[in-house]
Amino acid sequence: MIIFIGLVLGIILGVVFNINIPVKFSPYISVAIFACIDSVFGAIRAMVNKNFRADVFISGFFGNALLAAAMVYLGEKLGIPVYLAAIIVFAGRIFNNFAIVRRLFLDKTKFHN
């Protein structure tokens, strides 16, 4: 439940406060956002599997975002567009977690044969 409250609160704050981020930071922000979304879908999957732990979620949420941004920084220093690979990996994980959560919900409903 805390995940949904945080997600809704974050969306509301993002809509209310018009924060402009410089274009040079967009690779960092985009990868960090994907890392956070990946953590949220992982937490939803853990909640459905009934093995959610808030400490694991919070440490993963911030840790993944910081690590992803650090990888993008290192990639820029090396002249390698790491952010593209990171976005592809995180997007794959997000879709995978979504598919698992969807299947688990369908298995728990009476509409599934």
Rank of each mutant, 00 (worst) to 15 (best):
K24Y: 14
N51D: 14
M47N: 12
G60Q: 03
A43H: 05
K50I: 06
I21Y: 10
C36I: 14
R53C: 07
F61C: 05
I33N: 01
S39K: 05
P22W: 10
S26A: 14
I29C: 02
K24Q: 13
G63Q: 02
V56G: 00
D55Y: 11
N51H: 14
S59Q: 10
F52P: 04
R45V: 06
V31Y: 01
F61Q: 00
L66F: 13
K24T: 13
S59F: 11
A43E: 02
R45G: 03
F52T: 04
G42T: 03
I44H: 05
A43V: 03
A46Y: 09
R45C: 06
S26K: 15
I21F: 13
K50F: 08
D55F: 10
F41Q: 03
A54P: 01
I44R: 04
R45L: 15
V23G: 04
S30H: 12
P22Q: 08
V56W: 05
A65S: 07
N64D: 12
S26G: 05
D38N: 11
C36T: 08
A54L: 15
S26W: 15
D55M: 10
A43L: 06
I58P: 00
L66P: 01
V23Q: 13
V40E: 00
V23R: 13
A54C: 12
I29Q: 02
F52C: 04
S26D: 10
I33D: 00
N49R: 14
A32V: 08
G60D: 02
V48E: 09
I37G: 00
P27F: 10
F61S: 00
V56A: 08
S59T: 13
G63P: 02
F34C: 07
R45F: 09
N64A: 13
V56L: 11
R53W: 11
M47C: 10
V23A: 13
A46K: 15
V40G: 00
K24D: 12
F57W: 08
A46N: 09
L66A: 12
V40D: 00
K24G: 05
F25Y: 15
V48Y: 10
V40K: 02
I58D: 01
I33V: 15
I21N: 07
A35C: 08
P22E: 09
I29G: 00
I21H: 09
S26T: 14
A43R: 03
A65G: 02
N51R: 14
D38G: 03
F41L: 12
L66K: 07
V31F: 02
P27G: 08
N49K: 15
N51V: 09
P27M: 11
M47Y: 09
V48N: 04
I21W: 11
S39A: 12
C36R: 08
V56I: 14
S59Y: 11
G60F: 04
F41V: 05
V40W: 02
F57C: 02
F41N: 03
I58E: 04
F62D: 03
G63R: 07
G60P: 04
Y28R: 07
N64E: 08
N49I: 11
I33K: 06
V40H: 03
Y28H: 12
F41H: 01
I37T: 05
G60S: 09
A32I: 04
A54T: 14
